[in-house]
Computed example of a mutant assay.
Amino acid sequence: MAGYTDRKEDVLGRLRQIEGQVRGVQRMVVEDVACVDVLTQVSTVGGALQSCAVTLLDAHLASCVTEAVAEGGEAARAKVGEATLAIARLIRT
């Protein structure tokens, strides 16, 4: 089971909102809106994706990683390593 199951509707709602924002950016490009205005909206979409990613990461840490750490051993080390890599990917973007 995914760690975000109890937040699934929130995550899906955010992703639908982001999808709408991306369609809006596409329309802006079709309509030849000024570059700076398009870039501003692209930045907004990026921020929304980051926020969604943080929600998913929080759920992963609160459920999957916490459960693995409670079990201990190699499973715990693997889950912590997996979370570390996920965080590294997020801070690179």
Rank of each mutant, 00 (worst) to 15 (best):
Q50R: 15
E31T: 06
Q17C: 12
V36W: 10
T93V: 15
L12M: 10
S51L: 15
L15I: 04
G73K: 11
V30M: 09
E19G: 07
T5Q: 14
R14G: 06
R92Y: 04
E31V: 02
E67D: 08
E67N: 06
E9C: 05
T44C: 10
H60M: 05
R92S: 06
S43M: 01
V38R: 03
G20P: 00
I91F: 10
H60Q: 03
V65A: 00
L49S: 03
G73A: 07
K79W: 03
G24S: 02
E74Y: 05
A76D: 00
D10F: 08
K79T: 01
L56I: 08
T44D: 10
D32F: 00
E19R: 07
A76H: 04
Q17F: 13
D58K: 12
I91Q: 13
I91L: 09
I18T: 09
V36A: 13
I18Q: 07
Q41G: 14
I91V: 14
G13V: 01
V65C: 00
E9I: 08
G20T: 05
V69I: 11
A68T: 02
D6H: 15
R23N: 01
E31Q: 06
H60S: 01
Q26V: 15
E19K: 07
G24T: 01
G13P: 07
T55C: 04
E67G: 04
R16D: 12
L12I: 09
G46R: 09
A68F: 04
R27D: 08
S51F: 11
T66Q: 10
V11G: 01
D6L: 10
V25L: 03
A86M: 07
S63F: 07
Y4L: 13
Y4E: 14
R27M: 05
V33N: 11
R14V: 04
R77D: 13
K8C: 07
G72L: 11
A68H: 03
V54W: 14
L39M: 09
V36R: 12
Q41E: 12
C52L: 11
R23P: 00
T44A: 15
A48D: 03
A59G: 06
A34H: 15
R92F: 08
V65E: 01
A59F: 04
